[in-house]
Every structure is written in structure tokens, then in C-alpha cells.
């Protein structure tokens, strides 16, 4: 199979970055996330990134448009929807699955989000198979193969001396063609998929949860939650946003920014009513969204088992434990 020798990786990345806007996982200012490639920036490929690649399609803050008013006239200026062709290198199978979930939300069901589409349609994704699972990984319980990402354009496998690479989509094939001079025949075999130690039993979970909206278990489960937004902001599939505006020098700018169902303000209505007044309702919403509503609407889990929330939750409100407890209680 064709591939890139480890010693040639930066050469390959440089060639790609000369033609495309290239993003690689990297550690910058103490945080690992997808960053624009530069030759001084060593890609971080030993584990998954702290922040998921969703911010490249759905940034935490995104300016949409701005407008100015002069007497009776309004001038509107579009700000978003840049469409530079970009390449994402080193997306893990869980995160690729998550991008598929975001595609369903932002591009499916008859409504296309123009801001998301502009970036997504111009992006080629090179996924990287995992060769080891971290303690917080449980993607194989959520329908993800840690060593294969079918929705990616290209699939890459790390071996001892290099990275095997194969095209999964037509765009992927074209890309391999384009950079064929940077590839060479590698003799090594694809590595075996790692097994995740952490497990979540999900059989029959959707049907069971359909009967559990009013269950007392939610009050118990949510007790230790501090209602911060860590889980939702690190989650590669969480996609809620708020739209607000601000005035800057006579111009009004409309922007959207991530929002979190963990926040009191999220469901606060004009007049002061809040249909999710306590953490019980907010925690229930988060888990039902991932484990019932998403499967009902899109036929796939809203959780891809990346384990970021388990790793960073200040109080260790572990979704695999939640799933276990939901299974154990009587519906």
C-alpha cells in the first residue's frame, strides 16, 4: 500500500500546505487542537486533541453579518461563509463520526446551514486510525471502529516506519493522484484495531429511555453536576448555538456562539419562565439528546465515545456510568 515514511511526513505536509489551507492536530499555548500547519509546528499525533475539530466547521464564535442604518436605509454586509479549500489531517475515527453527526444536523433534513456548508463542502478530511485506546476511550461501544472512518476522504494507518494511506472517496482519489510524487510503496501491514477497555452497553437503550423522561433517576444522576459547559464545549457533536449582536462604531454585528444546555440562561424565556429550572432537567436533556433524540431523528448516537467529557468533567459525571445506571434502574 502507498504511504508516507515518518521521516517524510513534514515534507508531505509542506507540499499539501503549499496548495491548501492545511490543519493538523498540534499543541499550541498549552492546548491541543486543530491548527493551521506551519513547518515549525510539529503535528501532535500520539493521542486525540483536547478540543475537537468541530471548531473548524462550527467555530465557537462566528460573525454572520453586519449592518449599518442611515435614516431609512439599511446596509447589510455578509461576513461569514469563506470558502478556501482546506485539508484536515489526522482526524480520529470518533471525531469523523462526529463530523457526520454535525453534517446531519447542519446539512440534513431539508435545511442547509450556509455557514457550516461553506466550510464543510470545501474540506477534504484525512482520518488517522487509532493504534491505541486511551483509558477514557469507548468509541467501539458507540458504533465507531477505532481503526476506520468510512466518512473520511482518506484513511491513514500508522505503522512502525510510516503512515499507510488509502482513498475512500473520489475527492480522496484525486488528492492521492495530486500528491502521488510524495508517496511511496510501504511494505508494512495495517495495524490491528485497538480494543477500548471502557465500555457502554447500548442495546435497547433508546426504547428504554423513551419511557424514562419522568424517572426519579435524573435527580440522582444530576446531583453532583455543577452545570458548567465543559462537557458540551469539548463534545465533538454538541452543536447548540445562540445568536446575538453587538455594536461596534455604528455597525451592528450579528454573531453566533456556542451555547450549552447546561446553562440556566439557555432555556430562560422572556418574562422569566424557565422550562428547565434545575440541573435535573438540564442533565436529563443532555443525556436524552445524545442517547434518545439523536438516534430517533438521525439513526445514530449523539455520542461517539471520544471520552473528552469523561476526561475533563470537574466532577467525573461519566457518560458510560450514566448509561450503566440508566440500564440498571427499572424504567
Amino acid at each position: 500500500m502507498k504511504g508516507i515514511k515518518k521521516s517524510q511526513l513534514s515534507n508531505f505536509l509542506q507540499q499539501v500546505s503549499a496548495k491548501y489551507s492545511l490543519y493538523v492536530p498540534a499543541q499550541v499555548d498549552g492546548v491541543t487542537r486543530f491548527q493551521k500547519y506551519s513547518s515549525e509546528r510539529e503535528p501532535f499525533l500520539t493521542a486525540n486533541t483536547q478540543l475537537s475539530p468541530k471548531e473548524l466547521f462550527f467555530p465557537q464564535t462566528e460573525q454572520l453579518y453586519c449592518y449599518e442604518t442611515h435614516k431609512q436605509e439599511v446596509k447589510v454586509e455578509e461576513l461569514a461563509a469563506s470558502s478556501e479549500p482546506q485539508v484536515l489531517f489526522g482526524v480520529r475515527p470518533c471525531d469523523m463520526q462526529a463530523i457526520g453527526v454535525l453534517d446531519d444536523v447542519f446539512l440534513g433534513k431539508g435545511y442547509e446551514d450556509v455557514y457550516y456548508r461553506a466550510k464543510r463542502a470545501n474540506t477534504l478530511i484525512i482520518a488517522l486510525a487509532c493504534s491505541q485506546a486511551e483509558a477514557t476511550c469507548f468509541c467501539d461501544s458507540m458504533g465507531v471502529d477505532p481503526a476506520f472512518a468510512p466518512q473520511a476522504d482518506l484513511m491513514m494507518y500508522e505503522t512502525e516506519d510510516g503512515y499507510l494511506i488509502e482513498a475512500l472517496s473520489d475527492q480522496g482519489k484525486d488528492f492521492l493522484q495530486e500528491f502521488s510524487s510524495a508517496l511511496e510503496e510501504l511494505r508494512s501491514e495495517k495495524p490491528q484495531a485497538p480494543a477500548c477497555e471502557l465500555k457502554a452497553e447500548t442495546d435497547g437503550l433508546v426504547e428504554k429511555l423513551q419511557k424514562m423522561f419522568e424517572h426519579s433517576v435524573w435527580a440522582e444522576l444530576s446531583r453532583k453536576c455543577i452545570n458548567c459547559g465543559t462537557c458540551t464545549y469539548l463534545c465533538p457533536t454538541c452543536h447548540c448555538f445562540d445568536i446575538e449582536s453587538k455594536t461596534r462604531g455604528g455597525k451592528e454585528v450579528k454573531f453566533r456562539c456556542w451555547d450549552s444546555c447546561m446553562y440556566k440562561e439557555y432555556t430562560l424565556m422572556a418574562g422569566g419562565h424557565n422550562p428547565r429550572p434545575t440541573k435535573k432537567e438540564r442533565v436529563r436533556q443532555r443525556f436524552l439528546h445524545k442517547l434518545q433524540y439523536m438516534p430517533e431523528r438521525y439513526g445514530k448516537w449523539g455520542c461517539v465515545g471520544c471520552g473528552r467529557c469523561i476526561d475533563k468533567c470537574p466532577v467525573n459525571l461519566d457518560i458510560t456510568k450514566v448509561i450503566r445506571e440508566l440500564r440498571e434502574v427499572e424504567a
Binding site: G30, Q60, I226, G229
Partner: peptide
């Protein structure tokens, strides 16, 4: 600025 530029405003610091 360096440190706070990576703040994701999850409000964990406030809530805890």
C-alpha cells in the same frame, strides 16, 4: 492574554 485566549467560557471556575 495568552492564557485567557484559550478560555472556552465553560464557567466551570465560577460554578465550582
Amino acid at each position: 492574554q495568552d492564557h485567557y485566549s484559550r478560555c472556552i467560557r465553560c464557567y466551570a471556575c465560577r460554578n465550582v
